[in-house]
Structures are given as C-alpha cells and as structure tokens.
C-alpha cells in the first residue's frame, strides 16, 4: 500500500455548506472517494491510499486535471484505491463532487 497527498490552493468555497458524501466501492479496479467539508484555510487536500505502488506521477496528473475542472476550497478528499485506471479515477471524482455539490446521497 502507498499513501499519497496532494494539496491545491486558489479554489472557491461552495455557496451552501455540503454534507460528506461517499462514492464508489473499494474493489479490484475500483476506488471509493470520500468528500468532506474541512477547515483547511482555503485549501483542497487529497489523500490517496492505493494498493498499486509506484504510480505517484500518474496520480499527480489525474489530480491536477481534477482540480482544474473542480477548483474546490476547504474540502478534504480521501481515496481508497485498488488499482483503478486514471479514467475510472476521474469518473469517480466527478461523480463524487457532483454528489457533494448536489447533496445527492
């Protein structure tokens, strides 16, 4: 297992407070994404625990791309991954943020 941390600044806080949401399942080729409001002084922090060791640079690219699409502030994103492809990771992140913004459980 490997733990990776990313932090982004310059995002925008949500207009309305949102509740924590969980998207996805910790299974082979899949991941779960927990999105929570967090007092991070305007930062968006991402913590990834992954079973696929040695893919830090790919995660960095996927997360940079994610933040460019969804510049969030004061949000903590926690991921448990079992070797999902970058496409699946991006899809789950988009679903997770949509659920978080929309309050859709």
């Amino acid at each position: 297992m490997e733990t990776l941390t990313f932090e982004y600044r310059g995002g925008r806080a949500l207009a309305a407070p949102a509740a924590a949401t969980l998207t996805g399942v910790v299974g082979s080729g899949n991941l779960e994404v927990l999105v929570e409001p967090a007092a991070l002084d305007g930062a968006c922090r991402v913590e990834v625990t992954t079973a696929a060791v040695g893919f830090g640079r790919i995660w960095q690219a996927v997360m940079d791309d994610f933040f460019a699409r969804h510049p969030l502030a004061d949000v903590q994103i926690s991921i448990n991954d079992v070797g999902a492809t970058p496409a699946v990771v991006s899809l789950r992140l988009d679903q997770a943020v949509e659920a978080f913004r929309g309050g859709v459980a």
Binding site: M1, L22, V26, L34, E36, T49, A51, S78, N80
Partner: peptide, 21 residues
C-alpha cells in the same frame, strides 16, 4: 458514517486495502 473512518485495523498489517465503512 464513512467520515468516522472506523476502518479495520487488521487489514493494513497484511497490506490489504480498507474501506471507510
């Protein structure tokens, strides 16, 4: 709920992934 992070303490020593719930 998942935010409580009540994960299994027995999986990491065997290098197995945890789930928040």
């Amino acid at each position: 709920p998942p935010g409580a992070r009540m994960t299994s303490p027995h999986l990491p020593p065997l290098d197995a992934p945890v789930a928040f719930d």
